[in-house]
Write a protein that binds this DNA or RNA. Structure first.
Length: 273
DNA sequence: CTCCAGGGTTTGC
DNA sequence: GCAAACCATGGA
């Protein structure tokens, strides 16, 4: 099917922005997975794309996933013309990035694993988890292991989980799996909470602190007021903003600005260090 | 060999 | 409330 997107939408930047760990490109075709759904997207022209799903699936699954109901071009251009010169530079570099609305369970486990790991190491652990405990499906292009369910990770046990290079995070992952296995609708139920309540509930999970909770809120629940402060963002706050966190003033678009800055720092590490 | 990676928990003050 | 020690593992 062919879709038209008249807004910022850069699949390569989305893939490189460090929010999803299982997206991939194979000779010009981009693949994304959420839950048990897989999509292949091939850019055709400036705003036209071939997608592997039906019109109904595009509307129901992928428009929310890519946050396409929200106009990023206007948000970005406002930042580019604002008084915050570093943010203007970051927004320009990050044009095309979108905040993905990913599966809460997968996002929870992925960001528990992410602590003190490099992005390649995170990807490797998650891939090993999927290959070891995820359901195998076949698409037109490849065979894929889905992200494991809570029941599967709980049943796997700590010993088998530790074979996925989880290190000291192994008990965190297993405990989270036990909790969601015992109450499968918990993460969906939490979607009804406001930002402060959701943050508080997420932080009750072992291995989820301030930063990881904010990542889950932003990358799974679409809470774009949240701007996770990791080591890179912290360096930017120190070097570019004299220690004063600039993101809260962006209110509803703080998380989008954070992602522009994070992407910018990944591409210009020498400038921030 | 040492240092670091999209941090969190525990302990002590 | 804040600071420091400690936490596995892989790659540079």
């Amino acid at each position: 099917m062919r879709v038209t997107i008249f807004d910022d939408f850069d699949l390569q930047k989305i893939m490189d922005s460090g929010q999803c760990f299982r997206c991939k490109s194979l000779n010009g075709i981009y693949r994304f997975i959420t839950g048990s759904e897989v999509i292949y997207i091939q850019p055709r022209s400036k705003s036209e794309y071939n997608v592997s799903c039906t019109a109904d699936e595009w509307e129901r699954i992928w428009i929310p996933y890519f946050d396409l109901e929200q106009n990023y071009e206007s948000i970005r251009s406002k930042a580019e013309s604002g008084t915050d010169s570093f943010m203007a530079k970051a927004a320009k570099a990050g044009a095309g990035i979108r905040i993905l609305r990913q599966d809460p369970w997968e996002t929870l486990i992925s960001f528990i694993i992410s602590q003190r790991k490099s992005i390649p190491a995170i990807k490797k652990s998650i891939e090993t988890l999927a290959d070891s405990f995820g359901k195998v499906i076949h698409t037109e292009h490849e065979t894929i292991s889905l992200f494991p369910t809570a029941a599967a990770l709980y049943a796997a046990g700590s010993v088998a989980l530790s074979d996925c290079s989880l290190g000291y995070r192994t008990p965190y992952v297993h405990a989270a799996a036990a909790q969601i296995n015992a109450n499968p609708s918990l993460l969906d139920d939490w979607a009804a909470l406001d930002d402060p309540s959701l943050l508080a509930m997420l932080k009750t999970i072992k291995g989820v602190g301030e930063k990881v909770a904010n990542c889950i809120m932003l990358f799974a629940y679409g809470r774009t007021s949240c701007a996770p402060v990791d080591t890179w963002i912290s360096k930017v706050i120190d070097k570019e903003y004299d220690g004063a966190n600039p993101f809260p003033q962006y209110e509803r678009t703080a998380g989008i600005m954070q992602q522009y800055v994070f992407y910018y720092t990944l591409k210009h590490k020498e400038e921030v260090q």
